[in-house]
């Protein structure tokens, strides 16, 4: 659901004139309360992940990360992201092109439907694939006859991840391409450029930061998804566990340090994502200003 909120970052606002702001005491008090809240709710979990993962020392930390089950979970998480992110990127570009460069009936409905996965609980996102492909699902008997495994196997995990990360790239690109209009592309066409070349030479340079931004958010969610994947995975150790599911198993087995060690890996992913997001946002706002 992250994408529902449009990206904004505080522009450096000028200092306000004294008569348009609160007294110094009020300002300090409000800032203090706000920061205390943020520290308790957001900062503390970050710090605790680091503290807990090194509680048993560096060696235990390395052991937890190089455990064969952890490595196989890492591999599955990578494979899932490597399939889901490119496919959703191609979809996002195609959808944004159709929606922003043309007029057709039902466009608003299409945009609403693209956003739909953000409104669906992750657990339901997994459930729908179980109802479709599971042993008691609509296609279950047929799949069993033909020995095709989707639920409790990698394809189900990839599908559930694709569903959950479905809108990310499209959502980032649609407003950017809407704002840029069609004049550049029409000029290129009138000069004789054709389809793919128009996109590559004219559109892509204008949307590259937004595209990358959408892909990074999509990737973070794809690698971190828990609820949807949990429903379709079957939790088979070394086979159908992604990193978040591996964390759950370790935690439920009271291997807390190991659970937090693996969690620290995903936390690193989150921090890298946030830094990349911040850099890209300043690139994007610079592009808009130019």
């Amino acid at each position: 659901m992250a994408g529902i909120v449009t990206n904004t970052r505080a522009r450096p606002s000028a200092d306000r004139k004294p008569h348009l702001t609160e007294t110094r005491a009020v300002r300090w008090a409000l800032t203090g309360i706000a920061l205390l809240f943020l520290a308790l709710i957001v900062m503390l979990p970050l710090v605790s992940v680091i503290a807990e993962s090194f509680r048993k020392g560096w060696d235990a930390y390395v052991t937890a990360l190089t455990d064969p089950d952890a490595l196989s979970a890492l591999r599955l998480t990578m494979i899932t992201a490597l399939i889901a992110v490119p496919l959703n990127t191609v979809f996002g570009v195609a959808a944004a092109w159709a929606i922003t460069k043309f007029r057709f009936r039902g466009k608003n409905l299409l945009i609403t439907l693209i956003d739909l996965p953000f409104a669906v609980s992750p657990v339901i996102s997994g459930l729908i694939y179980v109802l479709l492909f599971g042993a008691q699902g609509f296609l279950g008997p047929w799949l069993q006859q033909n020995d095709i495994h989707i639920i409790f196997a990698t394809p189900g995990i990839v599908l559930a991840t694709m569903f959950v990360t479905f809108p990310f790239v499209a959502r980032e690109l649609i407003p950017i391409m809407e704002a840029q209009g069609v004049h550049d592309e029409e000029a290129a066409v009138s000069l004789g450029a054709r389809g793919w070349r128009v996109f590559r030479k004219v559109t892509l340079p204008n949307i590259k930061w937004g595209l990358l931004y959408g892909m990074i958010l999509c990737n973070a969610r794809a690698m971190g998804e828990f609820g949807a994947v949990s429903v379709v995975s079957g939790h088979i150790r070394g086979e159908t566990n992604t990193l978040p599911l591996h964390i759950e198993i370790l935690y439920n087995e009271y291997q807390f340090s190991a659970a937090f060690a693996v969690a620290s890996l995903l936390m690193l992913l989150a921090v890298v994502t946030l830094v990349a997001k911040s850099i890209l946002e300043s690139r994007m706002s610079r592009d808009v200003e130019n």
């Binding site: 992250a2 973070a220 998804e225 828990f226 995903l266 992913l269 989150a270």
Partner: peptide
């Protein structure tokens, strides 16, 4: 951060 941090973590 709550958007970026995997929910299990």
């Amino acid at each position: 951060l709550p958007f970026a941090l995997p929910t299990a973590v």
